[in-house]
Design a binder for these strands. Structure first.
Lengths: 152, 152
DNA sequence: TATTATTAAAGTCAAAGATAGTCAACCAAT
DNA sequence: ATTGGTTGACTATCTTTGACTTTAATAATA
């Protein structure tokens, strides 16, 4: 039996298909109203059926003019990167593993030097060793680290 | 979803572009009337989208004959913009602020499209909203996000 | 002329409005 | 008993509005 989540999933995929494929932007409350369900149900559908593992990424914004944008990954844009993304990166990657992976990406010419710097910066221990669990604080440190990487 | 603030932002940027580039002078009340919004809305747009870290400076005068002058900074003539950017990034940067900053960097040709994607990915809410305070876990999510950014 | 009042701007800040996110409790079907 | 789905209370974030303040130019007055 199709649950409401299944129905919403199909609906969203149909939307993406109709929009020639790669992305669609929705209002969470509208969709929820349309299917007469709780708004948070949309989040459930997104996390269980539109994750990176499923081949999608999500982008959203709160507040007035808020939205949720669902984008399909395009493996054909870079099959090697896609394969690495899907098969090689587990849920726990140590700093050493990250450094090796980034170097490998570079050696296969999948990323250039600047991009490698950005990645090392964003995943460095310095950045991630946060005493507070504060998103904005971490984000600013990540941004600073990435800009530093491009300047020095 | 384009908010009225977004529309005003585009309008002002278009004005600057048309004026061959570097500066434009407006009347706050006129713009507000034109877009049928509160005058203070203009200030909101200016502070959220035309600050120094976005590559602009503002100059204004109150009273009779008052005005607001928006000037574009020129990074190529002023290398210390890098310095300004580093100093302007506070310890708390929201996602929206990060997105706008990254776009400004791009508009000033300090980073290219791929680099902007990497930065947005590494600083996205999805990545940083970690319930666990686990470095390796976060790092893998950041890496995945960055790779996704290169293929979507 | 010097001073004061009036008018015409722009600035500030906090409250209200509009979205989306999180999380834990509850429910249903294996 | 476990897994997956549903709901709603609470939270976070961004935008819009308006009352009040500040400043500058001009007009009126001493």
């Amino acid at each position: 039996m199709a649950t409401i989540s299944d129905v919403i999933e199909s609906f969203l995929k149909e939307l993406i298909r109709q929009s020639q494929g790669q992305a669609v932007e929705i209002q969470r409350n509208e969709i929820a109203k349309h299917f007469d369900c709780a708004p948070s149900q949309i989040n459930y559908v997104l996390t269980t059926r539109f994750s990176v593992q499923h081949g999608y990424t999500i982008e959203s914004q709160r507040g007035g003019g808020g939205y949720i944008k669902i984008m399909r990954l395009r493996p054909e844009r870079n099959p090697s990167v896609h394969q690495i993304l899907m098969e090689e990166i587990r849920d726990n990657v140590t700093k050493t593993q990250a450094v090796r992976l980034i170097r490998a990406l570079q050696e296969q010419n999948l990323i250039n030097d600047r991009e490698a710097r950005l990645m090392r910066a964003a995943t460095s221990d310095v950045v991630l060793a946060s005493p507070l669990n504060n998103r904005d604080y971490m984000r600013s440190r990540i941004l600073k680290a990435m800009l530093s990487a491009l300047i020095h």
